[in-house]
Structure formats: structure tokens, C-alpha cells
Amino acid sequence: MLSQNSLLKRTWPMVVQCAEAHRKPRWVPVAKSKVFRVPKRPVVSEEERLELLRLHNNYKTQMRAIRRFYHEEMIKEKQTRESASSEMSQRLEAEEWARCVELNEKWNAQVAIEREERRKVEVNQLETYALKRMQAVDEKRVQAIAKASEEIKRQKELSSTFITPENLEAAIDHALANPTDYNFAIDLKGNKYLGRDTQITKPKEAASSASATA
């Protein structure tokens, strides 16, 4: 529970009113009951108006003058600072440039040494690679030659069975004498019956499923 004292000694009011809480948003039109309400103008006496006008005009003139004074002073200061710094900066820049050039040359020399070493290693690698490739090509060629010679040997052996104009008649006779029939039939059990005109002996138990000769 809050003690009475803490309530009395609080720094923040208990109920905080918020100005916006009961305001209408800007885009909502004037309330119906307030449409014909013409707000009253604040009445300022002529004396007061004149005096306030004079005071405000005075104030604005004074402030303009002060603002201009400090603005000009700022510009002046900036210019003096820039002109003073420009002489200094030129010398500093020249020194900086010389330093940079020296450092750059040092780096260049170092890089040149590294590059030479790297180039040597690279040339070596390239040589070995080229040699390896040449050997591989040679080997391949030798193998191809061997393969070709073998093929020639085989073909020469085969050439004894070729049909030539001399033994053409004999070959024809031989072919006519031994006709070859590649037709065959298969029954449901997968039995193969070679030949077109082969007589098929039907098995007794499967009389209906047999015989599908083409």
C-alpha cells in the first residue's frame, strides 16, 4: 500500500491531462454544433497594439543586426583560418608526398624480388607439366599403333573365309543347300519351337494352351 506521505510528497500530479486526448484530428470537419460558431477575436486596445508593434519591430531589427554581425564574423574567421592553413598545408603536403614516394619505391623493390622467385618456380612447374603431357601423347600413339597392328592381324586371319569371285558359286550352292530358318514359336510355358514347319507334339495335360504357330 502507498503511504499517505508518499502521496502528499509526490512530484508528479496524480491525474495528468493530455491536451490531445479530447481534440479532434485535423482532417475531421467542424462539428455540426460548431459550424455556425464564429470565434471572437481578442480585443487589443489601440495603445497596446501600437506599443507592441513598436517593441516587436525594435526587437526584430536588433536581432537581425546581431545575427548579421555574427554571421559575418564567422565567415571572416573561416577565411582567415583557410588562408593560414593553406601555406602550412602546402609544405606538409609536399613532405607527405615525398614520404609516400619513398615508401612506394621500397614496396616496389620488395615485390620485384618476390615476383622473380615466383616466376622461377612457375617456369619449373610449366616445364614438368609440358614434359608429362608429351610423354602421355607418345604413349597414346604407341598404344594406338599396337592396337591397329593387332586388328590387321585379325582381319588377315579372317580373310581366308571371305567370299571371293572365285568361290562365289560354291558359296551360293552351299547356302541353297542349307537353308536357315529363324522363325520359332513359344508356348505359355516358354518352350521354344524352332522352324516354320516344325511338327509340334502337344502335351496331354495342356492341349488347349499349346500350338500358336505363326
Partner: peptide
């Protein structure tokens, strides 16, 4: 123009 109040336009105030 001077800094300060100046002469009032309506002294009755």
C-alpha cells in the same frame, strides 16, 4: 535605433 526599451509609443501603459 538603439538597444533598450526606447521611447514608448503609448506612455499611458
Amino acid at each position: 535605433f538603439s538597444m533598450g526599451l526606447g521611447t514608448p509609443a503609448s506612455p499611458s501603459l
